[in-house]
Simulated scan of single mutants.
Amino acid sequence: MDYEALTLYGVAPAKELYKNERRSITEAVDFSVRFLPYLRRNAETTTLSLRPSSLFPVLASKLTTLGTDTPLITTWHEVWLDYWDEYLGRLAPFGKGVERLTAKMPHHPIAISSVTANRLTEIVPNGIDVKQIETTRPAEDGFDVLYAGRLIEHKNVDLLLEAFDRVAETDPDITLSLIDNGPERDALERQAQTLDLADRVTMLGFLEEYNDAHMRASDISETCRAPAGPM
């Protein structure tokens, strides 16, 4: 499948990303195993965007490219270290070991924050398509406050709902929307229904086609790709 300047390949069947409110390890391992044959046949340059939940395919890619001229470029969004203890419990040593091994193997790492860069090499901000943002028309049915990101416990979207309910009492027209899905969606929907101004909160779910129209229309927006760990 071609998308703008990219060619997209499906290398594994779709599976649930979450199991018991945690990213599925088996899904990541299965993807890694299926990804390797394609990588061996086709990769000349491999670029990967790295989060702790994607350590397994990155580690597999490094093992594949060792001893070759194929550069492996990884964008590190976060490094968990001791947060693995909270995230995986008794399996934390496994996560820590994979993270440490992945970081030490030869590659070209890029960090997007100073905290991550302390453990890696250089600071590079997330890229944005400025032209797309500037030319996108604001959505006609936009919202004053907008959150776009996975609905996961550590992102504290419940606090956003509480804060919005207080602020909304002072403004008769202010509205809020949450974009995307996640394991906390049901709980957040229930919480939203208990708010005094529940009718001003809209949960749009996952948007199949990405654009910045809702952000252009909002006064306050947050694209929450923040780390799950203590950063």
Rank of each mutant, 00 (worst) to 15 (best):
A12R: 13
A12V: 08
A14K: 12
N20I: 02
E21N: 13
R22S: 04
R22Q: 07
I25G: 01
E27Y: 05
E27R: 06
A28N: 03
D30C: 07
D30G: 07
F31T: 08
F31K: 08
F31H: 08
V33G: 01
R34V: 00
L36K: 06
L36Y: 09
P37A: 06
P37Q: 13
P37M: 13
P37F: 06
Y38N: 07
Y38G: 08
R40K: 15
R40N: 12
N42R: 15
A43E: 15
T46A: 12
T46V: 13
L48E: 02
S49N: 02
P52A: 06
P52Q: 03
S53D: 02
S53A: 02
S54V: 04
L55D: 03
F56G: 00
P57M: 09
L59T: 10
S61C: 14
L63A: 09
L66A: 15
L66R: 15
L66K: 06
T68E: 13
T70F: 00
T70A: 11
I73K: 14
T74N: 09
T75M: 00
W76M: 00
H77A: 05
E78N: 01
V79K: 04
V79D: 02
D82N: 10
D82A: 08
Y83D: 01
D85F: 04
Y87L: 11
Y87C: 05
R90A: 15
L91F: 10
L91I: 01
L91N: 07
A92V: 04
F94Q: 03
G95S: 01
G97C: 10
G97N: 08
V98W: 05
V98G: 12
L101Q: 09
L101N: 08
T102W: 00
A103M: 14
A103C: 12
K104F: 10
K104Q: 10
K104M: 11
P106N: 15
H107I: 06
H108Y: 10
A111E: 00
I112H: 02
S113W: 03
S113N: 09
A117G: 14
R119A: 09
E122C: 04
I123H: 05
G127M: 11
I128F: 11
I128N: 08
I128S: 11
D129H: 15
K131Y: 11
I133P: 00
I133E: 11
E134F: 02
E134Y: 06
E134G: 03
T135R: 15
T135M: 11
T135Y: 05
